[in-house]
């Protein structure tokens, strides 16, 4: 399971990367693996204001559909348009070209509530039991 250092993680299996007042987000390797072949990704448009835990979109695989939640409060500033034509990037490169949205970071303390790589790994191991 690929869990890069330097990112923050949620219990719903989203990741965030802090980039100069904004955060970029997507779903984790574990999440894409559980979903299987991703065939549609729908993200709320730029300008949408979200509280932490609000649905920021949905990701759909052949088998299932699942909500994606905002890891932190903020406003959507950018949506990964490449996923419209190539949703499989979520499977092949979930931390890179498979990113889903960029959000303004409304409140830095939100980040402290998220897990680091080690804590997320421990969380996954716990969940597997």
């Amino acid at each position: 399971m690929n869990i890069p250092e330097g990112l923050r993680y949620t219990k719903d299996h989203e990741w965030v990367r802090v980039e100069d007042g904004t955060v970029r987000m997507g779903i984790t390797d574990y999440a894409q693996h559980e979903l299987g072949d991703v065939v549609f990704v729908e993200i709320k448009p730029a300008g949408t204001q979200l509280k932490a835990g609000d649905a920021v979109g949905t990701v759909e695989s052949v088998k299932a559909v699942s909500d994606v939640y905002a890891p932190v409060a903020g406003t959507v500033t950018e949506v990964n348009a490449e996923l419209e034509a190539s949703p499989e990037l979520v499977n092949s490169d979930c931390y890179g070209r498979g990113w889903m949205a960029a959000l303004t970071l409304a409140s830095t303390p939100d980040l402290d509530a998220l897990m680091d790589a080690a804590a997320y790994r421990a969380y996954l191991e716990q969940e597997a039991k």
Binding site: H33, E34, G36, D37, S61, V62, K63, N91
Partner: peptide, 20 residues
């Protein structure tokens, strides 16, 4: 394989991916 409980049977849903 990703395994699931299918009516009481431990069965594979996919090995590499459904599309493939």
């Amino acid at each position: 394989a990703k395994m699931v409980d299918f009516h009481g049977w431990d069965m594979p849903v996919w090995y590499t991916g459904i599309k493939e």
